[in-house]
Amino acid sequence: MRSFRLKLRFWRRGKPILKEPRKKVELNLEKAHEKFISLSKRLEKIMSEESEANACESQILSEVSFLEDTQVYEAVLGRVQKVPYPLLNENDLGVWLLDYYTSLIAKIEALLELEEDI
């Protein structure tokens, strides 16, 4: 039992810090933003065609507007472009925003898939 605990501590200590290539983050961020905007418009269109507002759609679209209004995208992209080192660590704002966009894109896509008559 004792040796098992020791082993567990060893693994905890050994967790690596993830890093992402800067350029990759930059490009993906641009793409993600573009897609995010396009999907948001589609969602907005569906919503405008509905007689009754769907709570889920409203919630996501509010969040999208809120995020866009903060203009963090331009600021974060500018920052990522100016970073002098090749790798960004996992807590970088660029990585965060990309992750956030990715998550919102999945949500909007899921919603569109359920709502659109395809």
Partner: peptide
């Protein structure tokens, strides 16, 4: 496929409504 969980979240939101 993470969308399965997103669907699940949407279902829940829909129920709440």
């Amino acid at each position: 496929d993470v969308k399965q969980l997103e669907y699940a979240n949407i279902f829940l939101t829909f129920v709440i409504e």
